[in-house]
Design a protein around this nucleic acid. Structure first.
Length: 507
RNA sequence: GGCGCUAUCGUCUAGGGGUUAGGACGGAAGAUUCUCAAUCUUCAAACCCGGGUUCGAUUCCCGGUAGCGCUACCA
């Protein structure tokens, strides 16, 4: 196949959120899959704000969408706002109406939850309206009576509506099971179905990649495309992202874990988050897990998408199902999908020291610690293998940032198989030795091991009191590197402090 | 209720008429080590149920069940 690529071969895809809430993880994944498809195939990525629901749209939501996408560093090539394209939508409605494929429904709009759905059976149309004569219809419309425009679904001939989904395969549904859905509301505004199809046709969208919740809507869309004289695009529906309880993700039920900015604020790397999302409902089929953005673009194909809903395995909030804000010092890691955390750690470890350092710096500064880029660079290699989220740096490396260590249990200073006296001896000896040791890894190593030998104790017994005195806790990065970064002055001051404050009166 | 979609370890998934059903996360155990990590090794862990088709089904077909989605003048 040595065809030259023409513009007709290049796919045009779109992400079309309705700005009625924050950008949530499911939407983000839909964007990503579209983006991946466009980039993989040299196509065009379009962002279209489907804002036909004037009541529910908010500017804050638009901002949240931009904010999330900006963080993910995902770009698009064209941008549209559906509310500015009303003429086009009405035009299509007009076309369909003139072809006799839609009719005016003068029945007043239903308010709230209608009795149409539910156990009463399937609502298909408002009796009388479908059969209204054109003359009668025109007359009432001319008289200013409000109406909704409904699609006249060809229900009589036992017709089947068909399309082929790139993910779900051949789809068919009896027209008899499709209700006469609205195209135009009685205020003249287009419905989602109409606006979406009109824009998809006008923007020459070649592939519609969207959530599976639209799979059954697609039959209506096929009807609209055909009624307006357009060939329907290729559809590809994505399995839904669901919560551990199997229900779809909602902020109300599941809290901030469904919002993209939560991941940003917790210290996820955008590339890791994208990686994680891609693995939900898609597989490269070669057991690869950790992938860079480029590798994802390379590997992506519609064939790799699977059909079953995927669980985002975050920790369920409360048994009652309501979200309770976690206490300030609870571990945020506990709420995220463990695999997302692991992937994030993998991506963190793959970063160069420079890169990681520059991402850590704003996090540390935002926590109001005063740290220079140079110092951050020194600290970075010491934390790289110890953090899963960027924010972890605050708890893993806190002792590098603070002037004064927070109080700790003096018992921590006591080494394995040792006592307070041993801790005191170690610290005193350390003071003397360190005062005249160059603060470089190897020199420190030698000096401290020699000191341990002199004291007749194990190296571990020597290191622990020092580590605790200097870091304020037992678990910390390797000692010599730590001391080197901390410097002689701080080290000696903290050891003196431990001796003075913590071990006094301990005997 | 009607219609549609789906069903492999706890979770994400690979696979496919005959396999020890593979990988990953998480879990357990061990190695390494100045602690913690990281790393390495090992272990436990799955084909929803029932009928077909077939020499043989987890895989194909049908039914059931369960979950999800749609059933608005929301998107």
């Amino acid at each position: 196949m040595n065809q030259t690529t023409t513009s007709a071969d290049r796919p045009r895809v779109r992400f079309a959120p309705s700005p009625t809430g924050f950008l949530h993880v499911g939407s983000a994944r839909t964007f990503i899959f579209n983006w991946l498809y466009a980039r993989h195939n040299g196509g065009t990525m379009i962002l279209r704000l489907d804002d036909t629901d004037v009541e529910r749209n908010t500017e804050a939501s638009v901002q949240s969408i931009f904010e999330g996408l900006k963080w993910l560093n995902l770009s698009w090539d064209e941008q549209y706002k559906q509310s500015e394209r009303g003429a086009l939508h009405r035009q299509m409605a007009q076309t369909i109406f003139e072809r006799g494929l839609a009719y005016r429904d003068f029945t007043p709009a239903h308010t709230g939850d209608s009795e149409k759905s539910g156990a009463q059976g399937t609502w298909l149309s408002n009796p009388g309206m479908r059969e209204l004569s054109r003359e009668e219809s025109d007359r009432r419309a001319a008289a200013g009576e409000p109406f909704a425009l409904r699609f006249r679904v060809p229900r009589e001939r036992g017709e089947m509506i068909r399309f082929n989904d790139a993910v779900y395969g051949a789809q068919a549904k009896a027209a008899a099971d499709i209700e006469d859905f609205a195209l135009l509301r009685s205020d003249g505004m287009p419905t989602y179905h109409l606006a979406s199809c009109a824009d998809d046709a006008d923007l020459r969208i070649s592939h519609i990649i969207r959530g599976q919740d639209h799979l059954t809507n697609t039959f209506k869309h096929v009807l609209i495309f055909e009624a307006a004289g357009f060939e329907p695009p290729q559809f590809a529906h994505l399995p839904l992202l669901v919560a551990p309880d199997g229900t779809k993700l909602s902020k109300r039920r599941h809290g901030p874990v469904v919002s993209v900015t939560t991941y940003r604020d917790a210290g996820f790397l955008p590339e890791a988050f994208i990686n994680f999302l891609c693995l939900l409902g898609w597989s490269p089929k070669n057991d690869r897990e950790k992938m860079s953005r480029e590798e994802l673009v390379d590997a992506f194909s519609l064939e790799g998408i699977n059909r079953a809903n995927a669980v985002v395995n975050f920790k369920e909030s409360t048994p009652q199902g309501g979200w309770v804000p976690s206490p300030v010092n609870s571990n945020p890691e506990d709420t995220f999908d463990p695999k997302a955390l692991w992937l994030n750690a993998e991506h963190i470890r793959a970063l160069s020291v420079d890169d990681l350092g520059s991402r850590l710096l704003p996090v540390v500064r935002e926590a109001r610690f005063d740290v220079t880029p140079e110092k951050m660079l020194q600290i970075t290699p010491l934390v790289r293998e110890r953090i899963r989220l960027l924010r972890d740096v605050l708890v893993v490396a806190d002792f590098f940032f603070v002037d004064e260590l927070a109080p700790y249990d003096p018992a921590e200073l006591i080494p394995q198989k040792g006592d307070t006296a041993m801790a005191a001896r170690v610290l005193q000896r350390a003071q003397e030795v360190l005062a005249k040791t160059e603060f470089k890894h190897d020199a420190l190593d030698q000096a401290l091991r020699a000191a341990a030998q002199e004291l007749g104790i194990k190296a571990g017994q020597m290191f622990q009191p020092i580590r605790v005195a200097v870091c304020g806790r037992k678990n910390a990065p390797p000692l010599f590197e730590t001391l080197e970064v901390l410097g002689k002055e701080t080290t000696l001051a903290r050891i003196a402090q431990a001796l003075r404050v913590r071990l006094v009166g301990q005997k």
